[in-house]
């Protein structure tokens, strides 16, 4: 004979297992729509049809940003990369203040005809998880350990508790 407490415990465990399985299956089934954006590699693999709106996210590739004006409105072209593939983007409008080379961005738009380029209507900045004061950033640059143009900072263990002077002194180390 099971005590009532024990029976209730087993019921809770059984319900918990069932519920977690159901939720896990749902999350797997809706995986693609739960992702906020597609990476360039995913876009290259799946070829979304021209005109279908989706979000494209990645890092603004260094030395690809070209700014100009077209019909009086500012427009920008650049490439978004995830290190494995890169997609050219055309954006008409004012960029967010944090837009720069090496910055993570998420853009909303659609592929043009012939898969040539991504026509973005919105550009959002995507932050990394790193927080550092300006002098640490300068020290990392001077030590040649990081150029923000080429993406996120190096392994946090290399800078998170060292003084800027120590970081600079570790040049070529």
């Amino acid at each position: 004979m099971m005590s009532r407490k024990k029976r209730r415990l087993w019921i809770v465990i059984a319900c918990g297992l069932g519920l977690s399985t159901a939720v896990a299956l749902m999350l797997v089934a809706f995986r693609s729509s739960l992702s906020f954006f597609m990476s360039p590699q995913q876009v290259a693999a799946r070829h979304p049809p021209a005109g279908r709106v989706f979000r494209l996210g990645g890092i603004v590739q260094a030395n690809t940003v070209v700014m100009g004006t077209r019909d009086g409105a500012p427009y920008t072209t650049f490439r978004i990369t995830d290190g494995r593939a890169s997609i050219p983007v055309v954006y008409t409008g004012v960029l967010p203040g944090l837009f720069r080379q090496g910055q993570g961005v998420v853009t909303i738009g659609a592929m043009s005809r012939g898969d040539r380029e991504f026509l973005a209507s919105t550009v959002l900045a995507k932050h990394g998880a790193d927080y550092m004061p300006r002098d640490v950033e300068m020290a990392l640059r001077k030590a040649g350990k990081w150029n923000p143009k080429f993406g996120p900072p190096p392994n946090a263990g290399a800078w998170d508790d060292k003084s800027p002077a120590q970081i600079e002194a570790s040049n070529n180390g």
């Binding site: 992702s35 906020f36 998880a129 927080y131 946090a156």
Partner: peptide
């Protein structure tokens, strides 16, 4: 699990913190 606009965790149980010590 999914690509999100929100950044990853800055502090994890494994590995160094991605926040500079004075912050």
């Amino acid at each position: 699990w999914w690509n999100s606009l929100h950044q990853g965790n800055s502090i994890t149980l494994t590995g160094p913190s991605k926040i500079y010590v004075t912050m």
